[in-house]
């Protein structure tokens, strides 16, 4: 079975000539379907750069990144946008919901830019909100919701398009411990349901929710180990 993510010798260099800074220096790893990977590292380790590339927001300088078997490296901006729309769901540290826009409409956002779910936009968005336990807040705007609730709206938005990959960038960075646990439990539940999750964090206890952990330092993988949850079996997620 094709892995969701297949990264080979990934290099990202910013700037040119003498000012060139290598943020990633040859990473290789795979994420199988239904897996849950945590990428750890201190600030400056290159994890944000890696997250941008995995999220198809940026392209590698060299090496290859295959998402569902498709090489992202040579794609146009427009094709990347389509790929983000169809295959990736983002959860950001700062929630990144549209202000003054209801939870429901925030969740609808990816569907607006898609042809796949034409005609079923509102019901799908409602179903996604139900999945994160927020159906009773559908018409509230972000400022009327708590941090945890906002992040759950963001999770609903991330999965409404049925992506291959849920990419969470410090999803608990702005939340207290109890709410963090709540959000991580939502992500784990989704993963149990077969969703492939990549989690980027600098917190060790958050990384423990994953099945596998890789640690970055100076743009290279310095450690690779199993996480706190049992590794995915061949049948999990199908």
């Amino acid at each position: 079975m094709t892995p969701v993510i297949e990264v080979r010798d990934l290099v990202k260099v910013y700037g040119r000539g003498e000012n060139a800074v290598a943020a990633l220096r040859g990473l290789s790893f795979q994420v199988g379907r239904g897996d849950m990977l945590a990428i750890m590292g201190a600030s400056g380790s290159g994890k944000s750069t890696l997250m941008n590339i995995l999220g198809c927001l940026d392209r590698p300088t060299s090496g290859s990144y295959l998402l569902d078997g498709q090489d992202v490296g040579r794609m146009t901006r427009s094709r990347l946008a389509q790929l983000r729309n169809e295959r990736i769901g983002f959860v950001f540290q700062s929630f990144n919901l549209l202000p003054r826009t209801s939870a429901l409409e925030n969740v609808e956002l990816p569907l607006i830019y898609s042809d796949r779910f034409r005609g079923s936009v509102a019901p799908r968005a409602r179903a996604a909100l139900e999945l994160v336990g927020l159906s009773d807040r559908a018409h509230h705007v972000p400022s009327e919701l708590s941090g945890g609730q906002q992040q759950r709206v963001a999770v609903a938005r991330a999965l409404v398009n049925e992506p291959s990959l849920l990419l969470a960038d410090e999803p608990t960075g702005n939340l207290d411990t109890a709410t963090s646990r709540e959000i991580m439990e939502v992500l784990c539940r989704l993963n149990d349901g077969g969703m492939t999750v990549v989690l980027i964090t600098h917190e060790r206890d958050i990384a423990e929710y994953a099945r596998r952990v890789i640690v970055l330092r100076d743009g290279q993988i310095v450690e690779e180990r199993v996480g706190g949850r049992s590794p995915v079996t061949a049948t999990a997620g199908g």
């Binding site: 999220g55 927001l57 901006r77 427009s78 946008a81 389509q82 983000r84 729309n85 169809e86 983002f90 990144n96 919901l97 549209l98 202000p99 956002l109 990816p110 830019y113 898609s114 938005r157 398009n161």
Partner: peptide, 16 residues
Amino acid sequence: TREIGIRMAVGAKGWH
């Protein structure tokens, strides 16, 4: 700008 960024992240193309 941030709204534009969010829209692009969830799949809005340039022309959208």
